[in-house]
Design a protein around this nucleic acid. Structure first.
Lengths: 201, 201
DNA sequence: GTATCACGGTTCGGTGAATGAACTAACATG
DNA sequence: CATGTTAGTTCATTCACCGAACCGTGATAC
């Protein structure tokens, strides 16, 4: 395939990485997954991505071992997409790219602030905690809205959830006000979702 | 522009970064620039990229402040593209992506090895030198071919140059055997390039 | 028990970006 | 004067993205 995702002839791991992650939307899907987005409709509402493209990207990321497709309910069969350990390792490069953007592309100050959830201090480059000095894994990171974030932009569930502090990888609540911890995969049952999901953008 | 490089409505520095860097070929152009590629024909020979696309990408990167277009010769007017300080800051995210690829996408072992040029030790994640413990800037990094690199792949000048140890940002020699340091921008003069340039791929 | 809704897709026609080949401009070389 | 080099531009074709419509399954409302 000449056009498309491949970079034939490039004997280079960076090019191989881009073959997996470099297509339009792919890295935004991974970023959303890091923020706790797991369900098809949530990715779709948050990204405004055509369903066919989202479907293709999710399948490709599962194929590549970045995401895992996992059944969370049988009643109507429903799957969710969660990061594998390999996918979680993308935290470092993605944070580095985001921080580059915050430095050079955010005129009104950073849009998001990343903190070490357990001790509260801001994250320095490379996901290092300023206080602990440790390299903080994705699970211990908390995103908070920064001064550069416009608060009128989107009204989908994911955007609303990310407008207050949110632990990375913690599932997005099904409706606002629900405790993020309260979501059960074992009990199943068809959860009711708020009307807000349709009011996106 | 619905299709294309923009992610309208994403109020997120990561999405903004991808609007600058996320198009096909763009990050490979930046990677090549980090390896010392500066001239249109060298980018083109190494990447097998359509000239029209390369031209558009280079202009966009100049526009974004990642590359600087610099006249190195007047006789026939000739420009070269070099990384700005802002562009050089992309070293950390690009290395992180490359290292992710080396870990998960390189079946025969790493294709490239990154070393701290001044002390010789291999680079750990985040561009930290194992011996010095310092964070190594792009200028002090040396790429060397790794065990996973196929040596029959390409025969363009850039690929040949990168088949032996090469200091990052150091210009690719015009013909093999020439000292990389020997290239003068001030003296000008139309340098003769080897036949190898045309034997690409 | 029928109608409607939610979710997670697939299908399909239209559009625009990527591709590769050909062409151009400016100058140098033999 | 013919040819070559570098850095592009132009153009027809191809292919991926886009958005809207449709589909299947099961839950919920009436």
């Amino acid at each position: 395939m000449a056009l498309g995702k491949n970079y034939d002839g490039q004997d280079c791991s960076f090019a191989k990485t881009l073959e997996v992650l470099g297509e339009r939307w792919t890295l935004l899907v991974v970023r959303d997954a890091m923020c706790g987005v797991r369900r098809f409709a949530d990715f779709q509402a948050h990204l405004d991505i055509p369903k066919a493209v989202l479907s293709q990207r999710l399948s490709a990321l599962v194929e590549a071992g970045v995401l895992e497709r996992r059944r969370y309910q049988d009643a109507p069969p429903r799957d969710e997409y969660v990061l594998t350990p390999v996918g979680r390792e993308l935290w470092v490069p993605l944070l580095a790219l985001a921080q580059w953007g915050e430095r050079h592309l955010a005129a009104n100050g950073p849009r998001r602030l990343y903190h070490h959830a357990t001790c509260g201090s801001p994250l320095e480059p490379y996901s290092v905690c300023g206080t602990c000095g440790r390299s903080v894994p994705l699970e211990e990171v908390e995103v908070r809205p920064g001064p550069g974030l416009r608060d009128d932009a989107r009204t989908d569930l994911v955007s609303l959830a990310l407008r207050s502090p949110h632990r990375m990888l913690a599932p997005i609540p099904d409706k606002m006000g629900e405790t993020p911890e309260g979501r059960s995969h074992e009990l199943g049952g068809n959860r009711v979702r708020g009307r807000a999901a349709r009011a996106a953008r």
